[in-house]
Design a binder for these strands. Structure first.
Lengths: 249, 249
DNA sequence: CCCGCACATATTATATGATTATTAATCTCA
DNA sequence: TGAGATTAATAATCATATAATATGTGCGGG
């Protein structure tokens, strides 16, 4: 039996991508210009090869652009590939804003009901089984920190996978990232019991093959999250507290 | 006045990213293993630095993974970042399939009606102006090849931008890519007059601030495209013809 | 004072060779 | 047979040199 084998992902290069990526999204280079390759190498104690490869990866994610004699620079925020899981994670963890979370949730509100409808239409037994599994885990989970979140995420992941559509499935890492943040935020405000009822309704509708009801149920589920977020952002002070809570390190 | 200044994007590295990216998505490495850095350099006549940087960019897009002693390998297709504009473009241009186009259009069917609704709710005058501009261009366009397509794309781009939501806006390059392919495909089947009427209805609803009507209009617009695509894929032979039409080079 | 051209210059882009770290595969020995 | 040590292949990293490319600078002429 093959071991799960932990992927490395902790080479100097990947480490540099992480650090510099986080620095970029937090706006560290909004005032001072982005350093040249040489400086960047010196600052992080890496060779130029490593630096260049990290810069190239960040370029592929749309965060940087480089031209000879002009130097490397941070691209305008509008060009960042927000749909890259790394970029979204850096933004949500390092530069959290209720505004950003709200915008993402608006997109979830477009995507997830459609996903539930597709899943219902497709009615793949095995896939539905995995959705049910996620729900059971949610119900069984205690008041710990990690397991309820993981179960909730597993539910949404299973729904996206059940669409049989590669693009919906691709949104999974993004929604996972955002959910981890989002749940941490909404759990304080609202108990989990109501949430479970909603999830149950989604599963029922999908299992029954009722696309329209599945979409409606999912819409009300996500819509409630969005309502919580927008309500919180209207209330001054909450944003700062939320940022503190979600910040890691 | 600063010239538009053509971005380079044609360095050896970017060229290599393009070639290898296209080779990967077409499945060239499904049978034979992905070459080692040294071989890849030799095959493409580039130095190891260039090769490594290109590999790193493709790694950032989720197409490759590398580990010492094991070599570089193509990641399972499920891990490819389909939401990266380059990856989607390579797939649609080099390994076109009606199935993929249909799946993407399913996602459009979830996204674009919601975008229209958000645009209507927001009712930003300037943004609506840009949507109208796209529509005017569509009406004015002759039977040329490029301008009608560009105008149609401009319309959809403007709607996404009018949402004021960064994530919807981010989907623009993806939808642009797919639209370029999609229009080329559907135009053969169906005249453009009906299309313009639908677009007009979307604009009217957004301008009137009627979110629900905007969503419905957009849904029927995109839904029609999806119907064309699924109808075509049911009809044998069409797929091959479509692939030939959309293939570049 | 302004324009246009050559030229210097800073920076990324590319090339090359060597060294190190990682890990799959093999071998050794109990 | 199996666990542990060894080997070897490969990416990862380092160091250095050269080339290409924009950007500024200064000079000459109008």
């Amino acid at each position: 039996m093959a071991l799960p084998r932990i992927p490395r992902e902790r080479s100097l290069t990947y480490g540099l991508v992480e650090s510099v990526g986080q620095l970029i999204v937090t706006g560290a280079y909004d005032v001072q210009p982005f350093p040249t390759e040489g400086e960047l190498s010196r600052q992080h104690g890496t060779s130029r090869s490593v630096t260049r490869e990290a810069v190239k990866m960040l370029t592929a994610k749309g965060l940087l652009q480089a031209r000879p004699r002009q130097g490397t620079s941070v691209t305008p925020e509008a060009q960042w590939n927000l749909l890259d899981p790394d970029v979204l994670r850096w933004l949500l963890e390092r530069k959290f804003s209720l505004q950003l979370l709200a915008e993402f949730t608006e997109m979830r509100l477009a995507i997830e009901p459609a996903a539930a409808a597709l899943a219902a239409k497709r009615a793949d037994r095995e896939a539905i089984g995995r959705i049910r599994e996620g729900l059971e885990r949610m119900k069984a989970a205690g008041q710990g920190e990690d397991e309820p979140v993981a179960a909730d995420i597993a539910f949404h992941t299973a729904v996206l996978a059940a669409t049989g559509n590669r693009f919906f499935a691709q949104l999974d890492p993004l929604i996972n990232t955002a959910l981890r943040i989002s749940i941490r935020f909404t759990n304080r405000i609202k108990g989990r019991a109501a949430g479970i009822a909603h999830h149950e309704e989604v599963l029922d509708a999908i299992a029954a093959g009722d696309a329209e009801r599945a979409a409606l149920a999912m819409r009300s589920l996500v819509g409630e999250v969005l309502a919580l977020i927008t309500a919180a952002s209207a209330q001054p002070g909450t944003a700062r507290k939320a940022a503190r809570r979600t910040a890691l390190t």
